[in-house]
Design a protein around this nucleic acid. Structure first.
Length: 320
DNA sequence: AACCACACCTGTTCGC
DNA sequence: TGCGAACAGGTGTGGT
């Protein structure tokens, strides 16, 4: 499931693939395609029309949301939900792609069963990638190349919307707190916010208005590292303990980022369809019955918030 | 105001 | 063999 590290991998892939490119067309695919733009209240046709003709100038992220900054200061806001993917394909010259034979204008890339949106982009990235000594000029590679961007989403929890004037921070996510990997993340304020909550610490870590980007997997991993059980009251934590939890989220998410993210199944892949490897490093999540890597006690799984919590019943304590 | 339960959604797996 | 239940879980909403 995509949490912050996975979304950041996708953001980097999108930045490389989209910046400097112009949206030529937007196709909304199949009966479920409109669901992927359901949060765009003006409707699918309006979404497609609003986006066409715009050039992408940046791709940014906050927590699990990412957005494309468009020329003119508008934005396309996206969330992967549980199973959303962006996939990038080069399809040769855009000019010879205008004779659309297959539905959706596909020339040589088949539509997958869960493809909800297909964008066609033209133009090439210009500018900063050009480095002295490479012997290449930025913009040469891929000039006039056509590129396809598919939004694929099996469970349709994800989606895109066009946000006028949303370049700096799209209004629909103004309530989302900064994430721990944000350079402007305020650790002191976040620790204080955590310690004001009477809920269990895991519930607080999953509250995107307190700190964003953390989902079920990395919450369990951070709590294992900090030796806290999921239901430990947040307002019972010392400043030091709450800080340790935050530091643990940072460490585990940075580590996952270094390994390309966590993949349990085909639901998370990068823009080239490749999986990450962090699942081999997990200490708690998905390890029910397996020995705790610290003390050997079998990891326990308990239902929690319509999902599962994994923890070591011996070295993760509810009481301080 | 703070907190909590639940709906939303599809494909896979499991038990009967 | 077939079928329904359980499960995966991030987010927004509405109720307490």
């Amino acid at each position: 499931m995509p949490e912050l590290p996975e979304v950041e991998i996708v953001r980097r892939g999108l930045a490389a693939a989209l910046i400097g490119r112009t949206v030529v067309s937007v196709d909304i695919i199949g009966a479920l395609g409109p669901r992927s733009v359901r949060r765009h209240l003006a409707g699918p046709a309006d979404f497609a029309a609003a986006l066409a003709g715009h050039t992408v100038i940046d791709v940014r992220r906050r927590g699990k949301y990412l957005w494309w900054v468009l020329d003119g200061g508008d934005a396309v806001l996206a969330h992967l939900g549980m199973s959303g993917q962006f996939r990038v394909y080069d399809v040769g010259c855009a000019d010879d792609g205008v004779s659309h034979h297959a539905p959706g204008g596909t020339r040589n890339v088949a539509l997958g069963p869960h493809t909800r949106l297909r964008l066609r982009l033209a133009g090439s990235a210009v500018g900063t990638a050009n480095r002295a000594g490479t012997g290449r000029t930025a913009g040469t590679e891929g000039t006039a190349a056509g590129r396809i961007l598919d939004f694929v989403d099996q469970r349709t929890f994800g989606g895109l919307m066009f946000v006028p004037g949303g370049a700096e921070l799209p209004a629909p996510i103004a309530h989302i707190a900064r994430d721990p990997l944000d350079p402007a993340f305020d650790r002191v304020r976040t620790v204080a916010a955590i310690r004001r909550k009477h809920s269990g610490i895991k519930r607080v870590l999953l509250d995107q208005t307190v700190v964003s980007g953390i989902g079920n997997i990395y919450a369990d991993e951070a709590l294992w590292t900090a030796r806290l059980r999921y239901d430990r009251p947040a307002d019972s934590l010392s400043v030091r303990a709450a800080g340790a939890v935050i530091d643990a989220t940072i460490a585990v998410m940075r580590s996952a980022l270094d390994q390309g993210g966590t993949s349990f199944d085909a639901l998370y892949v990068n823009v080239n369809g490749e999986s990450g490897y962090f699942d081999r490093s997990l200490n708690a999540y998905g390890r029910a019955g397996a020995p705790c890597r610290r003390c050997g006690t079998p990891i326990r799984r308990e239902p929690f918030m319509n999902r599962s919590s994994f923890f070591c019943p011996r070295c993760q304590r509810r009481d301080g």
